[in-house]
Amino acid sequence: MLPFAAMSATTEAPVASRNAAGTPAAVALLGQGIDEIRSRRRLVRYLVHAEMKKRGSDTLLGNVWWVLDPLLQMAVYVVLVTIIARGLAPDYPLFVFAAILPWKWFSSVVNDATTCVVSRDRLIRQIAFPKIVLPVATATAGVVGFAWGLIPLGLIMLLFIERLTPLVLWIPVIAVVQYVFTLAVAVLVSAANVFFRDLGNITRHGLRLWWYLSPGLYSLDALTQVSIFREHPVLLTVVGMNPFAVLFESYRSVIYGTSDGGLPTSPNLFALVVLLVVSLGLLAASIVVFKRLEANFAKVL
């Protein structure tokens, strides 16, 4: 037999050497992680399917919750803000719904991501598979939830039909940026929770604080009316650097319109591109961290 015949056999039956070598370089880990996600697309698809099934079953209304949940949440905020705040933006239900929908996607993915690796502990101790597919599946399942949420969005837009413009076609583009950012956070959180089991508590409260600090219930412009922001304009810059400030303002500008009640306009493309680049960097870092920690998962779980 020729030497290269042995090579071709190797691809069929891998010769697996597992040495106690040191951890590979970050770039190698990143390449490995991306490769694993790409080669295991089918596994991700099955996991998303399983996730959907889990949420659909065991509940009275099943998939109807995907539609109902953001609507009820919107109702709560509309009531709350109508009572507390003065000077509401016109067509407030649509104003707030444009933020609730993407936030629900993000917060549910981050919450699910804390448990997505830990809950598969038995499998991780039994099968050698790339664990990174788990947070990827969780983040992707969130996209399906977001897509469902477009149904109630359509219903509300019917009530404010004059605000419906072709600009809503921007939604998928903005969603891509959000997906990258969400995935980065999900990958990081899922690995960290293996080592710190109370991370779920922290993320739950952190998410709530994040929501109120993001311009979801209010617009960024509204902050200029608040005295502390008038005295320290630097705070406005800080708030503007929040990824969800960019995302909410983008969604809102294409779904609702400008903060003074005007009709929809194109999103701030520069801010979106910057966020995309930052998110890609964060995602790369998250994958490297995940791959570093992955080797210890089976021991800790």
Binding site: P14, V15, A16, S17, N19, I124
Partner: peptide, 19 residues
Amino acid sequence: AGIIRPSEGAVDVRGHVSG
């Protein structure tokens, strides 16, 4: 099975391992 990486030493497995 490749689920845990050894802290020292080397493992050489030739062929498909049932997971």
